[in-house]
Amino acid sequence: MSGLRLVGVSVKREGRTVLTEASAAFPPGSLTAVIGPNGAGKSTLLAVAAGLLKPHAGALTLDGRPLETFGRQALARRRAYLPQSPRADWPISVERVVALGLTPYLPAFGRLPDELETQVETALRSHDLLALRHRRATELSGGELSRTMLARAVVGDPDLLLVDEPTAGLDPRHALDAAHRLGQRAQAGRTVAMAIHDLHLALRFADQVVALKDGCILAAGPLREVLDEPLLRRLYDMPARLIRDPDGVSVRFLG
């Protein structure tokens, strides 16, 4: 089984169970939207899937291999992770921030090898950052920063990309752009998962959905089959209606 797979994963934080026996598959070539109300455990699910948080029970596999058997560096080369509202703490140039994505490939000392510089170049170009490359990362607008961080995450071409709330704080155009880029990444055959509140974007770009509430997975599977009005109602405790029109599907909450 390729891609990422969680089987019966439970996570406790300070004695409180925040994820209960979660099982889900994140197949390659698809964009999975992790949805659910605030505090449902979406960020925890992504952090544990990234190997940054140790589960108290259950198993995680990446391409059939247990996640914990990957070394720190080996895992860093295969999966990228972006937390909520990622930012740089020093006024480093955009170009160098993107280059940080190649950290797991670097020798212990010395500068970036030339072939890796080409990868940085490619990532800058495909994320429309060439004009911004010398700009300080602390002085970017929200949309620019979001593109920079995404370029940083995919510069090493990881098989697995996990992004926590990629569209938070972005205007509609930039949110659409960010979700679109993640969709493209999935179409290129990689495994991509995002935690997202914007159901409109999830409906438009995601192929798979994992619906979380109170640390439990209510439903997981192909978005078209799984995401329906009863599920939305259970998730958000509000009646919801899926509206289909020539432009696509949208959600209206009737609470």
Binding site: R72, Y81, P83, G101
Partner: peptide
Amino acid sequence: TGRGLDALALGEAQAESLGVD
């Protein structure tokens, strides 16, 4: 600490995800 500090400019979560202990 040099390499690790560079990655840490992105915060602890991103640094960890980049293989920094």
